[in-house]
Protein backbone atom coordinates (compact mmCIF):
# COMPACT_ATOMS: atom_id res chain seq x y z
CA UNK A 1 0.00 0.00 0.00
CA UNK A 2 2.80 2.38 0.95
CA UNK A 3 4.55 1.56 -2.33
CA UNK A 4 1.36 2.36 -4.21
CA UNK A 5 1.01 5.72 -2.50
CA UNK A 6 4.66 6.58 -3.12
CA UNK A 7 4.19 5.73 -6.78
CA UNK A 8 1.13 7.94 -6.94
CA UNK A 9 2.97 10.90 -5.46
CA UNK A 10 5.97 10.33 -7.73
CA UNK A 11 3.73 10.45 -10.82
CA UNK A 12 2.35 13.87 -9.90
CA UNK A 13 0.03 15.64 -12.31
CA UNK A 14 0.13 14.39 -15.87
CA UNK A 15 -2.73 16.23 -17.54
CA UNK A 16 -2.37 18.99 -20.10
CA UNK A 17 -3.81 22.02 -18.34
CA UNK A 18 -4.67 24.26 -21.25
CA UNK A 19 -5.80 21.89 -23.94
CA UNK A 20 -6.88 24.65 -26.32
CA UNK A 21 -3.39 26.12 -26.46
CA UNK A 22 -1.36 22.98 -25.85
CA UNK A 23 2.02 23.21 -27.57
CA UNK A 24 2.67 20.74 -30.36
CA UNK A 25 6.08 19.41 -31.33
CA UNK A 26 7.46 21.05 -34.45
CA UNK A 27 7.84 17.72 -36.27
CA UNK A 28 4.06 17.10 -36.28
CA UNK A 29 2.53 17.34 -39.75
CA UNK A 30 -0.63 19.40 -39.47
CA UNK A 31 -2.23 22.15 -41.50
CA UNK A 32 -0.57 22.32 -44.96
CA UNK A 33 0.88 25.49 -46.47
CA UNK A 34 1.04 25.72 -50.24
CA UNK A 35 3.28 27.90 -52.32
CA UNK A 36 2.20 28.36 -55.95
CA UNK A 37 5.45 30.12 -56.89
CA UNK A 38 7.45 26.91 -56.60
CA UNK A 39 7.55 24.29 -59.35
CA UNK A 40 5.14 21.51 -58.43
CA UNK A 41 6.30 18.98 -61.05
CA UNK A 42 8.34 16.78 -58.65
CA UNK A 43 5.16 16.28 -56.58
CA UNK A 44 3.20 14.78 -59.45
CA UNK A 45 2.01 11.28 -58.71
CA UNK A 46 3.53 11.04 -55.22
CA UNK A 47 0.28 11.48 -53.29
CA UNK A 48 -1.05 8.02 -52.33
CA UNK A 49 -4.65 9.19 -51.92
CA UNK A 50 -5.02 11.90 -54.56
CA UNK A 51 -5.35 14.58 -51.88
CA UNK A 52 -2.83 16.79 -53.63
CA UNK A 53 -4.13 18.40 -56.81
CA UNK A 54 -1.11 19.46 -58.82
CA UNK A 55 -3.07 20.90 -61.76
CA UNK A 56 -4.98 23.39 -59.71
CA UNK A 57 -2.79 23.50 -56.63
CA UNK A 58 -4.70 22.40 -53.52
CA UNK A 59 -4.67 19.78 -50.77
CA UNK A 60 -7.83 18.08 -49.59
CA UNK A 61 -7.30 17.45 -45.86
CA UNK A 62 -10.22 15.04 -45.98
CA UNK A 63 -8.13 12.75 -48.18
CA UNK A 64 -4.69 13.61 -46.88
CA UNK A 65 -2.89 11.03 -44.74
CA UNK A 66 -0.30 13.66 -43.73
CA UNK A 67 2.39 11.21 -44.85
CA UNK A 68 4.61 14.06 -46.01
CA UNK A 69 5.52 12.40 -49.33
CA UNK A 70 4.71 15.62 -51.25
CA UNK A 71 6.66 17.82 -48.85
CA UNK A 72 9.64 15.48 -49.30
CA UNK A 73 9.37 15.73 -53.07
CA UNK A 74 9.22 19.50 -53.49
CA UNK A 75 9.08 22.81 -51.67
CA UNK A 76 5.62 23.79 -52.89
CA UNK A 77 4.05 21.92 -49.99
CA UNK A 78 4.95 22.35 -46.38
CA UNK A 79 3.21 21.00 -43.29
CA UNK A 80 2.89 23.28 -40.29
CA UNK A 81 2.38 21.87 -36.79
CA UNK A 82 -1.09 23.44 -36.45
CA UNK A 83 -3.37 20.69 -35.19
CA UNK A 84 -6.82 22.32 -35.23
CA UNK A 85 -7.90 20.85 -38.53
CA UNK A 86 -11.59 20.11 -38.15
CA UNK A 87 -14.49 21.72 -39.97
CA UNK A 88 -18.25 21.37 -40.15
CA UNK A 89 -18.04 21.86 -43.89
CA UNK A 90 -16.46 19.24 -46.14
CA UNK A 91 -15.50 21.86 -48.75
CA UNK A 92 -13.54 23.87 -46.21
CA UNK A 93 -11.06 21.01 -45.84
CA UNK A 94 -9.67 21.82 -49.27
CA UNK A 95 -6.67 24.07 -48.76
CA UNK A 96 -5.42 26.31 -51.59
CA UNK A 97 -2.29 28.53 -51.69
CA UNK A 98 -4.54 31.41 -50.60
CA UNK A 99 -5.86 29.70 -47.47
CA UNK A 100 -3.96 30.73 -44.38
CA UNK A 101 -4.47 28.84 -41.14
CA UNK A 102 -6.15 31.84 -39.50
CA UNK A 103 -8.45 32.20 -42.49
CA UNK A 104 -9.35 28.51 -42.29
CA UNK A 105 -10.09 28.67 -38.57
CA UNK A 106 -12.35 31.68 -38.96
CA UNK A 107 -14.76 29.92 -41.29
CA UNK A 108 -14.27 26.28 -40.30
CA UNK A 109 -17.19 26.05 -37.91
CA UNK A 110 -20.81 26.78 -38.66
CA UNK A 111 -22.76 25.20 -35.86
CA UNK A 112 -26.52 24.87 -35.63
CA UNK A 113 -27.93 27.01 -32.82
CA UNK A 114 -29.55 24.04 -31.06
CA UNK A 115 -26.20 22.25 -30.74
CA UNK A 116 -24.92 24.72 -28.16
CA UNK A 117 -28.19 24.62 -26.30
CA UNK A 118 -28.49 20.83 -26.19
CA UNK A 119 -24.90 19.59 -26.09
CA UNK A 120 -23.19 22.64 -24.67
CA UNK A 121 -22.36 21.19 -21.28
CA UNK A 122 -21.95 17.52 -22.01
CA UNK A 123 -21.56 15.34 -25.04
CA UNK A 124 -21.69 11.55 -24.96
CA UNK A 125 -20.44 9.77 -28.03
CA UNK A 126 -20.66 6.25 -29.40
CA UNK A 127 -17.72 5.26 -31.55
CA UNK A 128 -18.13 2.91 -34.50
CA UNK A 129 -15.08 1.44 -36.15
CA UNK A 130 -16.16 0.62 -39.69
CA UNK A 131 -12.98 -0.75 -41.18
CA UNK A 132 -10.70 1.48 -39.11
CA UNK A 133 -7.11 0.22 -38.88
CA UNK A 134 -7.00 0.75 -35.09
CA UNK A 135 -4.94 3.91 -35.53
CA UNK A 136 -7.81 6.34 -34.99
CA UNK A 137 -9.27 4.00 -32.37
CA UNK A 138 -6.06 4.11 -30.33
CA UNK A 139 -5.95 7.89 -30.56
CA UNK A 140 -9.59 8.17 -29.51
CA UNK A 141 -8.79 5.98 -26.52
CA UNK A 142 -5.84 8.25 -25.78
CA UNK A 143 -8.27 11.19 -25.58
CA UNK A 144 -9.53 9.68 -22.33
CA UNK A 145 -6.12 8.91 -20.78
CA UNK A 146 -4.56 10.94 -17.98
CA UNK A 147 -2.70 13.25 -20.36
CA UNK A 148 -5.60 14.50 -22.44
CA UNK A 149 -8.41 13.66 -20.03
CA UNK A 150 -11.32 14.55 -22.26
CA UNK A 151 -13.84 13.60 -19.58
CA UNK A 152 -13.19 16.85 -17.68
CA UNK A 153 -14.99 18.73 -20.47
CA UNK A 154 -18.04 16.51 -20.22
CA UNK A 155 -17.06 14.58 -23.34
CA UNK A 156 -17.07 10.80 -23.05
CA UNK A 157 -17.35 7.67 -25.09
CA UNK A 158 -20.27 5.57 -23.92
CA UNK A 159 -20.93 1.86 -24.27
CA UNK A 160 -24.31 2.00 -25.95
CA UNK A 161 -25.77 4.13 -28.76
CA UNK A 162 -28.86 4.44 -26.55
CA UNK A 163 -26.82 6.57 -24.16
CA UNK A 164 -25.21 8.64 -26.87
CA UNK A 165 -25.78 12.09 -28.34
CA UNK A 166 -23.93 11.20 -31.46
CA UNK A 167 -21.67 8.75 -33.22
CA UNK A 168 -18.04 8.98 -34.23
CA UNK A 169 -17.18 6.98 -37.33
CA UNK A 170 -13.66 5.76 -38.05
CA UNK A 171 -12.59 3.70 -41.03
CA UNK A 172 -13.67 3.71 -44.69
CA UNK A 173 -17.00 1.89 -43.93
CA UNK A 174 -16.66 -1.65 -45.14
CA UNK A 175 -19.50 -3.53 -46.74
CA UNK A 176 -19.53 -5.88 -43.75
CA UNK A 177 -19.96 -3.01 -41.27
CA UNK A 178 -22.53 -1.00 -43.26
CA UNK A 179 -25.52 -2.68 -41.63
CA UNK A 180 -24.18 -2.46 -38.08
CA UNK A 181 -23.30 1.20 -38.56
CA UNK A 182 -26.76 2.10 -39.77
CA UNK A 183 -28.28 0.07 -36.96
CA UNK A 184 -26.18 1.98 -34.45
CA UNK A 185 -27.21 5.30 -35.98
CA UNK A 186 -30.88 4.38 -35.78
CA UNK A 187 -30.48 3.30 -32.15
CA UNK A 188 -29.12 6.69 -31.16
CA UNK A 189 -31.88 8.97 -29.91
CA UNK A 190 -32.63 12.26 -31.69
CA UNK A 191 -31.33 14.91 -31.87
CA UNK A 192 -27.97 13.41 -32.74
CA UNK A 193 -24.79 14.30 -34.50
CA UNK A 194 -22.47 12.34 -36.79
CA UNK A 195 -18.74 12.90 -36.73
CA UNK A 196 -16.35 11.53 -39.34
CA UNK A 197 -12.96 10.94 -37.81
CA UNK A 198 -9.87 10.43 -39.97
CA UNK A 199 -9.05 10.35 -43.67
CA UNK A 200 -10.64 6.90 -44.16
CA UNK A 201 -14.01 7.95 -42.78
CA UNK A 202 -14.08 11.28 -44.60
CA UNK A 203 -12.96 10.08 -48.03
CA UNK A 204 -12.00 6.40 -47.92
CA UNK A 205 -8.34 7.45 -47.53
CA UNK A 206 -5.91 4.83 -48.81
CA UNK A 207 -8.83 2.42 -49.23
CA UNK A 208 -10.94 4.68 -51.47
CA UNK A 209 -10.54 2.37 -54.49
CA UNK A 210 -11.46 -0.80 -52.65
CA UNK A 211 -14.42 -2.83 -53.87
CA UNK A 212 -15.19 -3.94 -50.33
CA UNK A 213 -16.55 -0.59 -49.17
CA UNK A 214 -20.14 0.54 -48.91
CA UNK A 215 -20.34 4.25 -48.19
CA UNK A 216 -24.05 4.72 -48.83
CA UNK A 217 -24.54 5.72 -45.20
CA UNK A 218 -22.83 9.02 -45.89
CA UNK A 219 -25.26 9.87 -48.66
CA UNK A 220 -28.29 8.95 -46.58
CA UNK A 221 -27.57 10.87 -43.39
CA UNK A 222 -26.27 14.36 -42.64
CA UNK A 223 -22.69 14.70 -41.39
CA UNK A 224 -22.03 17.33 -38.75
CA UNK A 225 -18.30 17.38 -38.28
CA UNK A 226 -15.20 16.33 -40.24
CA UNK A 227 -11.97 15.73 -38.32
CA UNK A 228 -8.96 15.11 -40.58
CA UNK A 229 -5.87 13.12 -39.68
CA UNK A 230 -4.28 9.73 -40.22
CA UNK A 231 -4.75 8.97 -37.45
CA UNK A 232 -6.50 11.93 -35.81
CA UNK A 233 -4.32 13.37 -33.04
CA UNK A 234 -6.09 13.57 -29.64
CA UNK A 235 -5.57 17.34 -29.54
CA UNK A 236 -7.19 17.64 -32.97
CA UNK A 237 -10.16 15.59 -31.80
CA UNK A 238 -10.73 17.25 -28.45
CA UNK A 239 -10.38 20.76 -29.82
CA UNK A 240 -12.74 19.93 -32.66
CA UNK A 241 -15.41 18.82 -30.19
CA UNK A 242 -14.82 21.82 -27.93
CA UNK A 243 -15.19 24.21 -30.85
CA UNK A 244 -18.20 22.36 -32.12
CA UNK A 245 -20.44 22.00 -29.15
CA UNK A 246 -19.09 22.64 -25.73
CA UNK A 247 -17.50 26.03 -26.34
CA UNK A 248 -18.46 27.43 -22.98
CA UNK A 249 -17.18 24.41 -21.10
CA UNK A 250 -13.65 25.30 -22.08
CA UNK A 251 -10.64 25.28 -19.81
CA UNK A 252 -11.31 28.90 -18.87
CA UNK A 253 -14.36 27.88 -16.86
CA UNK A 254 -12.41 25.14 -15.07
CA UNK A 255 -9.54 27.34 -14.01
Amino acid sequence: MLETLKLRIYQGEQFIKDIENAPMRSQFRGFPKLNSDVDITPCKGVCPTGALNTENLSIDMGKCTFCGACANACKAVEFTNEYKLASTNREKLIVTPETTFEEFRKTAFEVREEIHRIFGRSLKLRQVSAGGCNGCEMELNACSNVNFDMGRFGIDFVASPRHADGIVITGPITENMAYALEDCYKSTPDPKIVILCGACAISGGVFQNSEKLNREFLEKYPIDLYIPGCPVHPLTFINAILCYGATHVGTSELN
Partner: peptide
Protein backbone atom coordinates in the same frame (compact mmCIF):
# COMPACT_ATOMS: atom_id res chain seq x y z
CA UNK B 1 -16.24 -6.94 -40.44
CA UNK B 2 -13.06 -5.03 -41.19
CA UNK B 3 -12.42 -6.59 -44.59
CA UNK B 4 -11.18 -3.77 -46.82
CA UNK B 5 -9.73 -5.87 -49.63
CA UNK B 6 -6.15 -4.97 -48.73
CA UNK B 7 -4.54 -7.77 -50.74
CA UNK B 8 -6.24 -6.62 -53.94
CA UNK B 9 -5.26 -3.02 -53.24
CA UNK B 10 -1.60 -4.09 -53.05
CA UNK B 11 -1.96 -5.53 -56.55
CA UNK B 12 -3.67 -2.34 -57.81
CA UNK B 13 -1.33 0.22 -56.31
CA UNK B 14 1.25 -0.85 -53.73
CA UNK B 15 2.40 2.04 -51.53
CA UNK B 16 4.08 2.48 -48.18
CA UNK B 17 1.00 4.32 -46.93
CA UNK B 18 -1.20 1.32 -47.72
CA UNK B 19 1.24 -0.96 -45.89
CA UNK B 20 1.05 1.36 -42.87
CA UNK B 21 -2.73 1.18 -42.81
CA UNK B 22 -3.18 -2.59 -42.99
CA UNK B 23 -2.98 -2.64 -39.23
CA UNK B 24 -2.62 0.77 -37.65
CA UNK B 25 -1.18 -0.47 -34.36
Amino acid sequence: YQNRGVEDLFVQNPTNQLAESVCGD
